[in-house]
Design a protein around this nucleic acid. Sequence first.
DNA 1: ATTAAAAATGCAATCGATTACAACAAAAAT
DNA 2: ATTTTTGTTGTAATCGATTGCATTTTTAAT
Lengths: 346, 346
Amino acid sequence: MGKKTTIYDIAEKLNITAATVSRALNGNSKISEKTRKLVNDTAKEMNYEQNKLALALKSGKSFNVGVIVPRIDTNFFASVIRGIEDELHPNGYHVIICQTHDQENLEIENINSLLNAQVDGILMSISNSKLETNQHFQKLLKKGVPLIFFDRKKDIAGVSSVTIDDFKGAYEATQHLIDQGCKRIAHYSSNRDILIFKNRYLGYKQAIIDNGLEFDETLVIETISKIIEGRKITKQLLAMKNPPDAIFSVSDFTALGAIEEIKAHGLKIPEDISVVGFSNEPFTRFMELSISSVDQSPIEMGRISAQVFLEEANNSKKIKSEKQVVLSPELIIRDSSLKSKVLVDN
Amino acid sequence: MGKKTTIYDIAEKLNITAATVSRALNGNSKISEKTRKLVNDTAKEMNYEQNKLALALKSGKSFNVGVIVPRIDTNFFASVIRGIEDELHPNGYHVIICQTHDQENLEIENINSLLNAQVDGILMSISNSKLETNQHFQKLLKKGVPLIFFDRKKDIAGVSSVTIDDFKGAYEATQHLIDQGCKRIAHYSSNRDILIFKNRYLGYKQAIIDNGLEFDETLVIETISKIIEGRKITKQLLAMKNPPDAIFSVSDFTALGAIEEIKAHGLKIPEDISVVGFSNEPFTRFMELSISSVDQSPIEMGRISAQVFLEEANNSKKIKSEKQVVLSPELIIRDSSLKSKVLVDN
DNA sequence: ATTAAAAATGCAATCGATTACAACAAAAAT
DNA sequence: ATTTTTGTTGTAATCGATTGCATTTTTAAT
């Protein structure tokens, strides 16, 4: 079992001091070319590897960052994490993943746990809960640990964020439906205490108003992102005396449920009812009837979040920079909402 | 900015030694009830939090484990990681994620990097490459760092693994196709240097032979897990003078490509050609034409991998236990391969 | 050949917690 | 009252790397 070699081992072998070895290895101070080469060579020869823990203890930096998401096994979050990883890894950082399962107590636990692990920063998407406390975030700020929100953010002074322009995404999706001739557009929403869902609602509403259509609050339904829920509420809508001729959903999953239910009723998509989802989950692309959706470029979101973190981490601690990056969403028009192919092809 | 309080701060305030504080906090030695309570109370009062880095340096344990996967943004790996997380987190461990992008050099880099970060163990699925070196794994073993393979494993003495019975999964899938009356079953394979793909191939072959069908090597095609590749090779197969009447693919993605291509040729599924995939990716379930597939229970796989790690980590280091856990796959029969619904419903 | 200036290296403390071992106190045994 | 035992706490080293300051060596200048 190979005991790890330390700088002391190298020092001993070379009859010099660990301090010299350290400096030589780091190329920092003024060390003679001769000993520098000597040290580097013997280090290689002895298979020396810097002990990051000792470094971390001394410097107070662990080169670990925490990432907290509701769950990891959805394409969106997995992709964001991938983006973060891709950006951070070349910079020597490692990513520690935590899941909240959308429970705020787990969110608090995770933050404490990561803090305890001495992470250099935390990137997170807040959990879906109505609790109003910000204590755990304040704790981070007080300790000077960089905190970056992505996607699901909260407006907190001193906290940077990377999101997409949800208002715009929703506005464009709705405008697109209107352009297709739709007049009664339903909106499948979610917990509007969370900014992204609120903004999507507002974007939808504004597009309706700007186009001189009637805004009907009964067509706005708050639900959760599950296929079965999409079916349920669609069934209810279709039973109305005056059912909608389009659906704009904040979730691809409820959009899928809607499509299933609409088909089950023998109605045609997009002719009778057009559907647009949100998130551009992979499955929307290769369905038999592909689903229009709003892309959030999750990998990009992850990369940028990581960049924002790196900036804050490298900044002189004094300057509390707060950066709000807003990415542009991209409406992906597919079968489920495209009535007039000719118009687009031209 | 709250400077973290250390055991020295507590010691100073209480006019005792840091050693005593440490002992009191850990409840280990024989410390008088009085001082123990006193220490614990003031610790709480001063918001003391143990510095894990110092502990890690002293003990050599970081309570971090590394997880290496080809990529994180696929449902299978994301789900495995979720299982690992769910199991490890309650035990005080954190998970550090690395991706290889299926490049062996990155695999080696990641291992070194994790080793450098002093992880207490590594759980991984090997990268898809034909390189024959095991040096980086041997290095881990030599250092006594527990290594656990999941899904994509290699047979290395001293390394535990958690996989599914790929042979069985493939055998059952093929048997199912035969039961449906298929006689010429193609097999979309992948790099068979990787055990899981080799075993799926063998399971497929055995089922063919056991049922007295002709085994035709030209129907076995090695490819990579992409929709477009599935389309390509399917196009070739359909151009044969004697095309297959079924396809068993080691990947849901190539299976999807096959389905697209078959439809494009005006053939019917499953009547003309039946299709079964592998992995039970979420999209297979809610396609218009749902795809039969073999479920690998990824979350379970992750959980068990984590459990195996915990056992090894807690074992007296001397005993080099090697554990091979094999989970049972589950064939999920859906539209793409079910010709005779009546038979099943009865 | 001396001395001043510059370059290279050593010394020792530090980061925060743990733990043999020593030392002291209090209680028990003689 | 003295010794032994037991129970508590202190001392100091350790984990591995970094770094301000002191010291030595080398080079340049007089």
